[in-house]
Nucleic acid binder design. Structure first.
Lengths: 244, 244
DNA sequence: CGCGGCATTGAACATCCTCAATCCTCGTGG
DNA sequence: CCACGAGGATTGAGGATGTTCAATGCCGCG
């Protein structure tokens, strides 16, 4: 018989990214960890472009991204499309303290992804705390998006978003030293940044020529994240004294 | 001796805007209503430009806007400034389910304003529900901002924001039929819309010439909100089945 | 080999910004 | 009652940043 924990570890034996992220938000007790692991075991696979939640429908429950990239999206009738935010492994959808809530945005998978129902926050105080911090980070990221779209130029927007990805993925161990997998097309980046794909392309070239990053085959490498952040005035989200 | 309830009613005897808003989010029981009224009595006055919360400091408790206009703001070192969102009478600052939370944005008064400490959500189930809905609306408005900044052009952004003000103020009775007081300068609008004051001015003129609105002496009148909304694809926030 | 999806490029154009001057409006003091 | 001053609104001209449209290149995959 197979080891029931196998799905929860990568080849080196460390826990999967999603669990790692929750644990880095707040140290989890054994009960919470077990509940999360059990939930992850029952994760559903979703394929790119499939809708996970439709805007306006009643939210059933909280979900946890186990792996893959997912986005919150809104469309205009004339086809203009805006990505409101990304959801990465270990992040939650549908956090809500209200009965009968309605989804305020559509959620679609951008890559192959695994999604499970998030264990109830009542399982433990520690888990509730991890959820709360996750939620606070979520809000901080929305504010960062507003700043980005409102006051940064195209070049800065791209760098700023990549820096945010780097920081978010670092929580789950999916980014180290400015290196991470980025399974997005330039068009998707454009939809998130309020730009056209053509212009994203040109700005990326500028960044490459400046030696600030490389991005080939879905792998991004930021040359020097700290200096880059300094250059464009980017500040990582801080929502709790406990977190770095 | 003066009637202790005087501050809670406008000349026609209806409750003040802030209380009215909470009641339109969720019908309040007598206890909650009394607690809110008591809190409002103790409201502090703040003057324009004064900081209510500074980004990065520890949040002390939840606050309720009693009257006036307040904004969440973020600045870049080179002086660029973005208004992340507005806070209107009856809306809450610092909703947070986490110990030791840090403020993720600075909050400043845009006009003379009155602010009080919000009564605890534990006072009643009804009050907690009103807070939860208020919070959900808050998030919906952040998403609306992202859409606005990312995918609307200057003209649409202005109309869209004015429509949002109209809807939000209608909850507290401060807007009726597309008419409301707007104590903002064009520069402040620009800071919220990711534009310059000059361009806001030009687009406002276009809107006036199109007969879509008037705005003089701090009073806005939207000619036909429903048709305007239709024209730019604006949709009001819906976060609960219960609400309109 | 030949698609199909994405990335890249160019040229013409639109939108929005910058800078700076001018005009209002309204409250203040003479 | 009027001049004055300050902040905000308005205007113009020229320029920067992004967009559009359309063509071309690249690369993995059946």
């Amino acid at each position: 018989m197979t080891n029931p924990h196998r799905a929860l570890s990568d080849p080196s034996g460390r826990p999967v990214a999603a669990l790692r992220r929750l644990q880095s938000l707040a140290p989890l007790d054994a009960g919470a960890r077990a509940a999360v692991e059990a939930a992850i075991q029952k994760a559903q696979s979703v394929s790119p472009h499939s809708e996970i939640i439709a805007e306006g429908e009643t939210i059933q429950g909280q979900k946890l991204i186990v792996s893959g990239w997912v986005a919150r999206v809104r469309q205009l009738s004339d086809g203009r499309r805006q990505i409101l935010g990304f959801l990465l492994p270990g992040e939650l959808i549908g956090v809500c303290h209200q009965p009968e809530p309605l989804a305020v945005s559509t959620v679609v998978a951008l890559s192959d992804a695994m999604i499970c129902t998030a264990p109830s926050a009542r399982i433990s105080h520690e888990l509730a705390r991890a959820y709360a911090i996750s939620h606070a980070l979520d809000e901080a990221q929305l504010l960062a998006s507003i700043m980005r779209l409102g006051r940064l130029d195209a070049y800065e927007r791209i760098i700023d978003l990549l820096l945010e990805f780097n920081e978010r993925l670092a929580l789950s161990g999916l980014a180290t030293g400015g290196n991470f997998a980025l399974p997005l097309t330039q068009e998707i980046m454009a939809d998130a940044l309020g730009l056209t794909a053509v212009h994203v392309n040109r700005m990326l070239q500028r960044a490459r020529n400046n030696g600030e990053l490389t991005w080939r085959g879905g792998q991004v490498a930021l040359r020097d994240p700290a200096t880059l952040a300094e250059a464009i005035g980017h500040q990582p989200a801080r929502v709790s004294k406990a977190l770095g």
